[in-house]
Design a protein around this nucleic acid. Structure first.
Lengths: 221, 221
DNA sequence: TTATGTGAAAATGTTCACAGCT
DNA sequence: AGCTGTGAACATTTTCACATAA
């Protein structure tokens, strides 16, 4: 596997976090039939500054044309490739409570190569139940899912008490990427990547800004 | 040209984003009956370094005791106060699809002073339907909710096509904080705070790291 | 002439290491 | 002694401004 020439080395984390936004905007433009786009237009569609967009894209390579702009299709495929979206990513959702069921029914996964291959629950009373047209499977199925179906990403939608145990089961089976919806800090070895999504945290950050707004008004009208 | 750069109480954004994590850990400790905690212990519970924790807390004031640690109850209440969680925050959820219904049933809101006061939908066929023991209301109710019930935070759980319209309705009614689950960039005036939660983005970031892991292995075993 | 790509500057965020207080 | 609080060093991220190429 000769990677030397075209391997973008060390894309900063902050930049990686914005690439999906660019890809989304490019996909929309592509569907509108737009063939070419300037950094100004794409940045505006993605909600960032044009300087930041150009800097981000420069970490991937030089895919634009000076004086002209970027080819929408080409750039979309370069970004998809940088993100590792050329292969598809089998996903399992663990925890069939309210949130787990909503995630199971969510269509957004499939849209970008994330294939939900299994719904799992720890509770024997839930196992076997049908959710989103699929039978809920026991946690003991994890090993097979990793071995035989290449399961790569685990989504934890359990209550907080069960999240670490669910995570441990995922890691034991060989999963190294976890999307955690439970409001706990998961202990994992360094080679595992965890992303946390927590509603309470988001609301509290909003509260801070709303609150600060009030204070700012009172202090400097 | 005119900016008083000296903000007396400017807590950095990165720090604000971690405060909810500290508060969560402190609340758990408080329920365990723990009265006092060191920066090392609290940092470990929140998944950050002790130096970063102390730095973050120093933006709020000096609430620790040198040689001893922090009083759990006191620190929790100081953080809650800094986040603006002393009053309660009325929340409305807009969009009663799968995700909206899951959010409506979610118990985590109430846990920290976020009170869901209304569920709304744009579609007349959904309005009036009962969700999580509550009748779904029409978008035209927004003004009353803001005026009479102090609605402060809008949660957008609509499909992407309807998100900007939903956001516009929220802002027109006077809401200035929005938690957006739709995969679109919302256009809002600068005084409005928007936080975005997007599953596809999170999965794509995980894909990047999983993918890079493969490459790293292949290059440097 | 136009809009990209990029060094350099500025701003922001994190870690270090130790002074200062109990 | 022990642990917090913080200035200073370091690292990362963002913005600026312009050389560069079509």
């Amino acid at each position: 596997m000769s990677t030397a020439a075209t391997t973008p080395r060390g894309v900063p984390d902050a930049s990686v976090a914005r690439l999906p936004g660019y890809l989304r905007a490019l996909t929309a433009m592509s569907q509108d039939g737009t063939a070419s786009v300037s950094s100004e237009e794409l940045a505006s569609a993605a909600g960032v500054s044009s300087a930041m967009l150009r800097k981000d894209l420069s970490y991937l390579g030089s895919y634009g044309v000076r004086g002209v702009g970027y080819d929408v299709g080409r750039l979309a495929s370069e970004i998809a490739s940088a993100l590792g979206l050329t292969k598809d990513w089998p996903v399992a959702i663990v925890g069939m409570g309210n949130l787990g069921r909503a995630l199971a029914a969510y269509r957004g996964f499939a849209e970008r190569g994330f294939r939900v291959i299994a719904l799992l629950d720890h509770d024997d009373r839930v196992v076997g139940e049908e959710v989103a047209g699929r039978a809920v499977r026991p946690m003991t199925d994890l090993e097979v899912l990793v071995e035989d179906h290449g399961l790569a990403i685990g989504v934890i939608a359990t209550p907080p008490e069960g999240a670490q145990a669910a995570c441990d089961r995922l890691l034991a089976a060989g999963v190294r990427s976890v999307l955690n919806f439970a409001a706990v800090v998961l202990a994992v070895p360094p080679e595992v990547t965890v992303r946390n999504v927590d509603l309470s945290t988001e609301l509290q950050i909003l509260a801070f800004h709303g609150h600060r707004g009030d204070v700012a008004e009172a202090v400097a009208p």
